[in-house]
Design a protein around this nucleic acid. Structure first.
Length: 831
RNA sequence: GGGCAAGUGGCGGAAUUGGUAUACGCGACGGACUCAAAAUCCGUUAUCAGCAAUGAUGUGAGGGUUCAAGUCCCUCCUUGCCCACCA
C-alpha cells in the first residue's frame, strides 16, 4: 500500500515557471485581459513608464526595472476595480537607428520593422500587462502626421519661429543640439571620455517659444506629486530671476548696452562694464588702438566653449575695449571691458560690474586695477547674496540720495528712479532658452514647411499632412549642414502652396523630444485618422496617474509639460499638467556599483534569467524587492534565486492545500490565520499605494512564513484556509502575475486574478485579545507582560511594577513619573 | 563653490513618523530527510561577558532636548546625485 506522503510526492507538481508563464501569456493575449476599455464606467487609472527607444540590443535590466514598476501599479489598480490602462509604444525616430543605417545601408524603416516585433516577444516574456491593441510608434506616418500638426499649430499660434543662432553642434551627430542635450560640454549621445566637446555654430533653425510658458511651468511645479529632486531640477533649469534691465549709453556714440541685473540696488557701485566675447556691439564700439587686442582675445575665447572656459579655472581674463559707458544715474564714465566670465547665453550678454558687492567683479577689478566703490555702510566687500538675504540689515552709502536707507526700502525707489529716467525697466529673466527643434538629420519627422523664393517659409496645409519621410538608399548627411533629405530631389522640389512658384521643402526634421512630448495623449486614441485624438476621451483620461523613469529629469518632462499646456490652451485637454505622479526611480548597477555595459561584459540579460528557469515572476519580484524604488540597487546574483524560493514556498502551500482533507480548523488557529492574512492585505495595500513595493513584498513573505507555522497544526480544506490562500495569491499577483494566475485557477476561480480581485481587510480580524506591553525603567527595557487589550491603566501599571526583573530595578528607587502608552509600553522614571 | 539626498548587522534593507532597533531577503552556521548530494523543511545568527537568568554596549562622530531619540535641534565627517562664473 502506498502511503499518503508518497501519493503527495507523485501527484504534486513543483513550481515550474517554464510551463506556467508562456501558457498564461498566450491566454491573456487571447482573452484580451489587459485591453483597456477607454469608455468604461469604472474609475480610470493610467500608469506608464517613459517611452522606449528601440535598439537592436533588446531589453536590458534597466527596462525590466522601469516597466515592471509601472506594470505593478497598473496591475494593482486593475485588481482594485479600476479600468487600468498600461500603454505601450516605441520612440522610434532618432540617431542610433540612423547611424546604424549609415553604417549598414539597411534603412531605419527596415530595421524598426525587424526590431519592434522582437520587443513584442520580450515584453510579453516579462509579463507586462500592456494593451497591445493601442500600440503606437512615432516613426509611422499615422503618428508623425500629428507631430507635424503640433508644429503647425505652434507656428500658427506664434510659438514656432525660425532664427539663425549660434547653436551647440555635435560633430559626431552632425546636428545641432538643444541646451538640454549638452551634458558637461558633451553631446548627450556622445558623452564618453573620448568623445568630442560640442562646438558652437551659427545655424538657421526652428525654435519653439517655450520661454513664453516659463512662468507657468515654474509656478505649477510646487503642486506636483513628483520626486523632489526632479522638481528642483526643473526649477533650476527654468532659472527665474527678478531684477531690472538697465540701459547704459556708450560715450560719443548712439549705442546703448542693455544689462540685466538682479542687484540694481547696488547700481551706484557700478564702476565698469563687461561684455561677453560674443556680444554683437563689441566690434562697433571698440577703440582703434584696442582693435587688435580685442580681436585676439575674442578669437581666443570663441575657440573655446563656455564649458571649456570654466574648466580652465576661474582665473579672470579680459581686455579693455577703449570705449566708455555713461552711468545712467551719476553720469560718470565707466570703462567697457570684454571678458569671458560674462556669458553670452545668460541675460543680455553684458553686465554692469559692481566690484564692491560681486565676487567676480571684485576679483576682476583687483586684477586689472579698476575702481571699487562700496555701497554699504561697512565700506568693505560684502557679497550681494548676503545683502539679498537680509536687506534690512545693510545701510546704503555712496548712493546719492539713498544714503542711509536700508536696501529693502531703497530697492524699489532706485528702480522707480531708473524707470523715471527712462533707462531702466523691471525685468524677469529666465535661464531657460527657447527650444531648438530642428535637427539636420534624416530619421525624424519632416518639418512641414516649404521654403518659397517669393513667399519665404510657408506651412504645409493640414490636409496635406503628413509630409511623408521619403525612403532613401544613402543616409549620410549631405555635408553642407543639411540632412540626407537635401539629396532627395524628387521629394525636395515642390511648388509653393501659396504662389505656385519654385520652392523647396524644409530638410530639417523635428527633434525626437517632440515625438515624446505628446505620446501619452495619442495612447488614448491611437487610431484616430481625423484628429490628433478625441478631446472628449482625452479629458476623461487625463492626466496620466502614474509615470516613472530613471532619466530625463529636465528635458523630456519639461517639454511634455509645455506641449500639454499648449494643447490645453487649444481646448484639446483640460488639465495643464500631464503627469499626476512622477517617480524618479533608481537604476540597477553591477555588484561593484558600476554601470552594466555590453563592452565590460558585466551585463545581466533579463531574458537569460527567465530562460535559466527562474522565470519572469521571480525576476520581477526581485527587482521590486531589492531596495526602495528610488534607490540605485546593486545587482545581487543570489537575489532572483531568493524570490524564486519564495514563490516555490507559496506554490507548495497551495498544492498541499489542494490535496488536504476537508476538515474544520480549530477556533484559535482560525483566528490566527485570519489575523495573519488580513494584516498582510492591509500592509500590502498601503505599501503599493505609497510606492513602497519592497515592504509590500516582505508583508507577503512574512504572511507565508506564518502560514507555514500554522500549517503544522493541520492544513485542511475549508473557508479559513481558502480565504488565506486566495488573499495571499491576489497580493502577489501584481509582482508575480503568471504564478498567481495559475494558483488562482487551481484554487477554483473561473476568471482571471488580474481583474477586480484585490482583497479587503477587516480591522476586527487584526485585533488580539492580549497585547504585549514593554516595561522600561528610565527608558531601558526591563521586561514585558501580556495584558488584556482593554485593560485599565492602573491594572497594567500595577502588573508592570510586579514583574520580577522590573521589581529588582525599582527596588530602593523612587518613582518620579510613570508614562503609560496604551497597548505599547510603561516607562518608570526613577531616582 | 552651491543645492539635494543619504550614512543602521557579514550584505541588500525595515522601523506604523518620538515608544521593544535590525522586519523581510541574501549569506553563514546547526539539525531533520537521504546510502550520499542537491532540493526541501525546522532552528540559530548585532557585539562583548556569562552555563543560564541577565547585564553592558550599539543606528557615521561629538554635543543637546525628552520619561523615552535611528527618528527632533546644533556642530562636524563621509558618500552619492544634480547644478555650477546665472550678473
Amino acid at each position: 500500500m502506498i502511503d499518503q506522503e508518497q501519493t503527495k510526492g507523485i501527484t504534486m507538481q513543483r513550481y515550474n515557471p517554464k510551463d506556467i508563464e508562456p501558457k498564461w501569456q498566450a491566454a491573456w493575449d487571447k482573452d484580451g485581459t489587459y485591453v483597456a476599455d477607454l469608455r468604461s464606467d469604472k474609475p480610470k487609472y493610467m500608469a506608464m513608464s517613459m517611452f522606449n527607444y528601440p535598439s537592436g540590443a533588446g531589453i536590458h535590466i534597466g527596462h525590466a526595472m522601469n516597466y515592471t514598476i509601472s506594470d505593478v501599479k497598473a496591475r494593482f489598480k486593475r485588481q482594485s476595480g479600476y479600468e487600468s490602462y498600461h500603454p505601450v509604444g516605441w520612440d522610434a525616430f532618432g540617431l542610433p537607428a540612423e547611424n546604424f543605417a549609415i553604417k549598414s545601408g539597411v534603412s531605419p524603416q527596415a530595421s524598426m520593422a525587424k526590431i519592434i516585433p522582437d520587443y513584442h516577444r520580450q515584453y510579453k516574456a516579462m509579463g507586462w500587462s500592456n494593451d497591445w491593441t493601442k500600440e503606437i510608434a512615432t516613426h509611422q506616418p499615422e503618428y508623425y502626421k500629428w507631430t507635424q500638426w503640433i508644429f503647425s499649430q505652434m507656428y500658427r499660434n506664434g510659438l514656432a519661429y525660425q532664427d539663425a543662432r549660434m547653436q551647440w553642434w555635435c560633430t559626431k551627430c552632425q546636428t545641432v543640439l538643444a541646451n538640454e542635450q549638452v551634458i558637461d560640454g558633451k553631446c548627450w549621445r556622445h558623452d564618453g571620455a573620448d568623445d568630442p566637446i560640442v562646438e558652437k555654430r551659427e545655424v538657421k533653425q526652428w525654435f519653439f517659444r517655450i520661454t513664453e510658458y516659463a512662468d507657468e511651468l515654474l509656478e505649477a511645479i510646487d503642486g506636483l506629486d513628483w520626486s523632489d529632486s526632479v522638481k528642483l531640477a526643473q526649477k533650476n533649469w527654468i532659472g527665474k530671476s527678478v531684477g531690472a534691465e538697465v540701459d547704459f549709453a556708450i560715450k560719443d556714440t548712439d549705442h546703448t548696452v542693455k544689462v540685466f541685473t538682479t542687484a540694481h540696488d547696488t547700481i551706484y557701485g557700478a564702476t565698469f562694464m563687461v561684455l561677453a566675447p560674443e556680444h554683437e556691439l563689441l566690434e562697433k564700439i571698440v577703440a582703434h588702438e584696442q582693435i587688435e587686442a580685442v580681436q585676439d582675445y575674442v578669437a581666443q575665447a570663441l575657440k573655446k566653449t563656455e564649458v571649456q572656459r570654466q574648466q580652465e579655472g576661474k582665473e579672470k581674463t579680459g581686455v579693455f575695449t577703449g570705449a566708455y559707458a555713461v552711468h545712467p544715474l551719476t553720469g560718470k564714465t565707466m570703462p567697457i571691458w570684454v571678458a569671458d566670465y560674462v556669458l553670452a547665453s545668460y541675460g543680455t550678454g553684458a553686465i554692469m560690474a559692481v566690484p564692491g558687492e560681486d565676487e567676480r567683479d571684485y576679483e576682476f577689478a583687483r586684477k586689472f586695477g579698476l575702481d571699487i566703490v562700496f555701497t554699504t555702510e561697512e565700506q568693505t566687500f560684502i557679497p550681494y547674496a548676503d545683502i539679498k538675504e537680509a536687506p534690512r540689515k545693510f545701510v546704503m552709502s555712496n548712493s546719492a540720495e539713498f544714503d542711509g536707507m536700508d536696501f529693502e526700502s531703497a530697492r524699489p525707489k532706485i528702480l522707480a528712479k531708473l524707470e523715471q529716467a527712462g533707462v531702466g525697466v523691471s525685468k524677469v529673466n529666465y535661464k531657460m532658452r527657447d527650444w531648438s527643434v530642428s535637427r539636420q538629420r534624416y530619421w525624424g519627422a519632416p518639418i512641414p514647411v516649404i521654403h518659397c523664393q517669393e513667399c519665404g517659409p510657408v506651412l504645409v496645409e493640414d490636409d496635406q499632412l503628413p509630409v511623408v519621410l521619403p525612403e532613401l538608399d544613402d543616409f549620410q548627411p549631405s555635408g553642407d549642414g543639411r540632412s540626407a533629405l537635401a539629396r532627395a530631389t524628387d521629394w525636395l522640389i515642390v511648388d509653393c502652396p501659396r504662389c505656385g512658384g519654385k520652392a523647396e521643402r524644409e530638410t530639417d526634421t523635428l527633434d525626437t523630444y517632440i515625438c515624446s512630448s505628446w505620446y501619452m495623449w495619442r495612447y488614448l486614441d491611437p487610431h484616430n485618422a481625423e484628429r490628433i485624438f478625441d478631446p472628449e476621451l482625452a479629458k476623461r483620461w487625463e492626466p496620466v496617474d502614474f509615470y516613472n523613469g530613471a532619466d530625463h529629469a529636465t528635458a523630456h518632462l519639461l517639454y511634455a509639460r509645455f506641449v500639454t499646456r499648449f494643447l490645453t490652451k487649444q481646448g484639446l485637454l483640460s488639465n495643464p499638467e500631464p503627469f499626476k505622479q512622477f517617480l524618479f526611480n533608481g537604476k540597477v548597477t553591477a555588484s561593484d556599483g558600476t554601470m552594466f555595459s555590453k563592452s565590460k561584459g558585466n551585463g545581466v540579460d533579463p531574458l537569460d534569467i527567465i530562460g535559466q528557469g527562474y522565470g519572469a515572476d521571480a525576476l520581477r519580484m526581485y527587482l521590486m524587492f531589492a531596495a526602495p524604488l528610488e534607490i540605485w540597487a546593486k545587482w545581487d546574483p543570489q537575489g532572483v534565486p531568493g524570490t524564486f524560493r519564495f514563490l516555490s514556498r507559496v506554490w507548495t502551500l497551495v498544492q498541499e492545500y489542494l490535496e488536504a482533507p476537508v476538515a474544520e480548523t480549530a477556533e484559535a488557529d482560525a483566528r490566527d490565520i485570519r489575523r495573519v492574512t488580513h494584516a498582510m492585505v492591509k500592509k500590502a495595500t498601503h505599501d503599493i499605494e505609497r510606492n513602497q513595493y519592497n515592504t509590500a513584498i516582505s508583508a507577503t513573505m512574512a504572511a507565508t512564513n506564518n502560514l507555514y507555522k500554522l500549517k503544522a497544526n493541520g492544513l485542511a480544506r475549508n473557508t479559513v484556509w481558502q480565504e488565506a490562500l486566495d488573499k495571499l495569491v491576489a497580493c502577489i499577483a501584481p509582482f508575480a502575475p503568471h504564478a498567481a494566475e495559475e494558483m488562482w485557477r487551481q484554487l477554483g476561480h473561473g476568471t482571471t486574478v488580474h481583474r477586480d480581485s484585490w482583497p479587503s481587510w477587516d480591522e476586527a480580524a487584526l485585533r488580539t485579545d492580549e497585547v504585549t506591553i514593554v516595561i522600561q525603567v528610565n527608558g531601558k527595557v526591563r521586561g514585558q507582560i501580556e495584558s488584556p487589550a482593554e485593560a485599565e491603566e492602573a491594572i497594567v501599571v500595577a502588573t508592570a511594577k510586579a514583574e520580577a526583573n522590573v521589581a529588582t530595578h525599582l527596588e530602593g528607587k523612587q518613582i518620579v513619573k510613570t508614562i503609560y502608552v496604551p497597548g505599547k509600553l510603561v516607562n518608570f522614571a526613577v531616582r
